[in-house]
């Protein structure tokens, strides 16, 4: 199994470490050739700054080919900025990146860094897990075909639509690997 991790900016190494602990091969995606040189069973869009990642995927020619992969059903997991990359709507406007997941998202929804927080909360099917929110967004509304997987104070912070899994929090900066395990389960089901 080979998982591609978008490595243009942000906390991609943390995701790679989680995957390596789960015995999975990882390839970094930094430029177009990286997409042709490997076959991917799934892709992770990490946390970072969504404005930076959104610009770099375009400047580096990653936007079209990655969008095709996702639309063709390749499992994809977005955390924080990665969630923003997938969202159809951001802050009431039209999503400005891949815009392929039927969710409406509010950016920096908890304010500046002083609003960042950690909480133990339940994620559907995984039990109570640590959730780390760093200048995080939350999901304001989801489409009919998008099951909600976790809520904190009535705000949606994890959801799934077919091959797309998103969390507003950062499982990759904790020692808990259950969300990554859940994603690898999606990957296995997809390749069956």
């Amino acid at each position: 199994m080979n998982i591609g991790v978008l490595a243009v900016q942000g906390a991609f190494i943390e995701h790679e470490r989680c995957l390596q602990q789960l015995g999975v091969t990882v390839s970094e995606i930094r430029k177009q050739e990286d997409l042709w040189q490997h076959t991917f069973d799934g892709i992770i869009l990490p946390g970072g700054e969504s404005t930076v990642m959104g610009k770099l995927i375009r400047d580096l020619g990653l936007y079209e080919p990655m969008l095709m992969l996702i639309k063709n059903g390749l499992p994809v997991f977005g955390t924080c900025a990665g969630l923003l990359l997938l969202a159809q709507q951001i802050d009431g406007g039209v999503g400005s990146h891949f815009a392929c997941m039927d969710i409406a998202v509010k950016r920096n929804a908890y304010g500046r860094q002083l609003g960042s927080f950690t909480i133990q909360q339940e994620m559907k099917g995984l039990g109570v897990i640590p959730m780390v929110f760093i200048r995080a967004p939350y999901i304001e509304t989801v489409g009919k075909k998008v099951p909600v997987l976790a809520e904190v104070d009535g705000k949606i912070v994890a959801a799934r639509e077919d091959n797309m899994l998103v969390t507003a929090f950062h499982p990759e900066v904790t020692a808990d690997l259950s969300v990554h395990r859940y994603f690898l389960g999606m990957v296995r089901n997809h390749s069956l």
Binding site: G10, A11, F12, E14, E49, Q113, T118, I134, R135, V173
Partner: peptide, 11 residues
């Protein structure tokens, strides 16, 4: 959390 924010700035 403050170290985590720096992690998000990496790269």
């Amino acid at each position: 959390l403050n170290k985590n924010l720096a992690q998000m700035l990496k790269g």
